[in-house]
């Protein structure tokens, strides 16, 4: 079977709604399509989806973007933020984006709590394939949402 994948425009719509609702509503502060970037985001938050569809949603961004988002959500100065604050805020963004992406896919499925990597290396997605990659610019900073589908055919393909 072919694994279902969300439509990239739907993913962009979700990201726009999340940013528009919580990170400043006027048009100029919404994320725009950015150039495809190579390499991994320094800050990532990953939620996994299991059930009707298996895979992961990764929200990644620059350190600056992560601190700006946390400052807005927590109403704190960027210099007051602890690493835990940034992880909390980025994790919640991944939770909101991932939960809404889950509703685009075959269900019912469960959503895991976010796993956040701040300043660490790339998250490894064993036995998954990147189905959607959306590169955005928010306040001039790179933001990426990628959707990884588990290669479940190989795991569950042993039906006789």
């Amino acid at each position: 079977m072919t694994a279902a994948a969300p439509d990239i425009d739907d993913v962009e719509q979700i990201v726009t709604e999340v940013f528009g609702s919580f990170l400043g509503g006027d048009d100029e502060s919404l994320p725009m399509r950015g150039p495809d970037t190579e390499g991994d985001s320094p800050v990532t938050a990953t939620v996994s989806i299991t059930g009707g569809w298996d895979g992961h949603v990764v929200f990644g961004c620059s350190t600056t973007a992560s601190r700006s988002a946390a400052a807005v959500l927590l109403m704190m100065g960027a210099d007051e933020l602890a690493e835990a604050d940034v992880a909390d805020a980025v994790g919640e963004l991944a939770n909101m984006i991932g939960g809404n992406i889950k509703s685009l896919l075959p269900g019912p499925s469960a959503l895991t709590l976010p796993m956040v990597s701040v300043g660490g290396g790339a998250m490894h997605m064993p036995s998954s394939t990147e189905a959607v990659r959306l590169d955005l610019l928010w306040q001039g900073e790179p933001v990426r949402v990628s959707v990884w589908a588990s290669n479940s055919d190989t795991q569950e393909g042993s039906t006789s």
């Binding site: 999340v18 528009g20 991932g98 939960g99 809404n100 889950k102 509703s103 019912p108 499925s109």
Partner: peptide
């Protein structure tokens, strides 16, 4: 108040006794 937005999940929450349901993100 949750990002869970599948139709069936909202039904489950109401059946469990939730009175209302707001999907994240919200204004």
């Amino acid at each position: 108040v949750t990002t869970e937005s599948e139709h069936g999940q909202i039904v489950r929450a109401l059946a469990a006794g939730a009175h209302e349901y707001v999907i994240k993100p919200f204004t």
